[in-house]
Write a protein that binds this DNA or RNA. Structure first.
Lengths: 192, 192
DNA sequence: CGTATTTCTTAACTTAAGTGAACGAGTTTT
DNA sequence: AAAACTCGTTCACTTAAGTTAAGAAATACG
């Protein structure tokens, strides 16, 4: 399990045994049950997450309705908006499946970053990479229809369609659950 | 003009006169005419931009049609995807108005970052901030209708509606120019 | 085990966006 | 000055998503 974390880090920087031990001594690993809420709207949290196993999601509640906007699965890192701008959270984070995460708070990160300057570099590269990737995703979303988005989801994250409830997928695609059902029926219809 | 750049930087770190001079000696400032293409699809560029005055946009060409996905105006920073992942660009960048920009290439940034480690910190904070801000924008886009997006654009970036052609705004909102016209007429109709 | 609840699908109807075409106003070209 | 082009708007028509409601299927729970 720890290897998953180090495999991830090794994509950006290389670690000595000392550095690995320093990380392990922080006791970051947490096991969380499906349905657990990690962050609520209005809370000011300090915690960032890295998914070792399982799936967590971000959702808003608008007019009493849940709107899921992001899923994080194995090897995904998530620093909530409220950690960065120190304001109350605008959204919820909860566990879609039983999951194993690392949970690190902002203070720990400052400490690690000052002890091992390498980490600062990794954080910058990672943030830039995520920024660029997210922009491409955003662009693709803007320039395509719900049906195209669903088809490309099948291509790019087929596991999500299996492991996540349809109504959560629907809002992730920017539509209502009924529209997703219809859209799926339409695609099947055309295939036959 | 230079003050605009230093005002921006001062939001993240404080600079000594020496550091300011080091930046000025890089000769970053460029004046570009409306319509100039700064980056073409397929090119591998090293350049990042910071808008001091004017407006630039990112657009794709899909099935022969321009799809504008982002506008950058005063005090906005833009590092193209191709600079980060060193692959050919998937999009175009062009000038919406006569503009004044800073243009910095990746090598210069590596040099500045190693000479003044402060910059590494600024880049990380900036990237994290942009990442968080962009995610909120993406979330808002996903959870709202074209009409709601247009109304919130009026609230948040009213200048864009004046300075940018309608058909570019339309694709920015994820719809066709005809739909934007209709949508505007609908809103006016309701007001009266 | 059976009941309650959630989840997914289907259907009929409404609303809004996509499409193709036409028009006028304003620019640019020649 | 006329012709060609671009841009925004409008219209009629098509297609797809939103809405409301109902029922089937799967899951959770006492």
């Amino acid at each position: 399990m720890q290897d998953t974390l180090f495999d991830f880090i090794s994509k950006y920087i290389s670690l000595t045994e000392d550095e690995k031990n320093a990380i392990l001594s922080l006791d970051l690993f947490r096991s969380v049950k499906k349905g657990t809420t990690l962050l609520k709207k209005g809370q000011k949290s300090q915690d960032s997450y890295f998914v070792l196993k399982g799936c967590i999601r971000i959702y808003y509640i608008v007019d009493g309705e849940e709107k899921t906007t992001a899923f994080y699965t194995e090897m995904d890192a998530l620093t909530p908006h409220c950690v960065i701008n120190k304001a109350p959270s605008e959204y919820f984070i909860s566990c879609v499946e039983d999951s194993i995460l690392t949970v690190s708070n902002a203070d720990m990160e400052v400490e690690i970053n000052s002890k091992f300057p390498k980490f600062e570099l990794m954080c910058r590269i990672l943030a830039e990479e995520l920024l660029a990737k997210q922009q491409i995703d955003f662009d693709e979303f803007k320039t395509s229809s719900p049906e195209q988005r669903y088809l490309s989801l099948i291509q790019n994250r087929p596991d999500l369609i299996q492991r996540v409830p349809q109504h959560q997928l629907a809002s992730y695609l920017g539509i209502k659950p009924q529209s997703l059902s219809r859209l799926r029926a339409r695609i099947l219809e055309r295939k036959s």
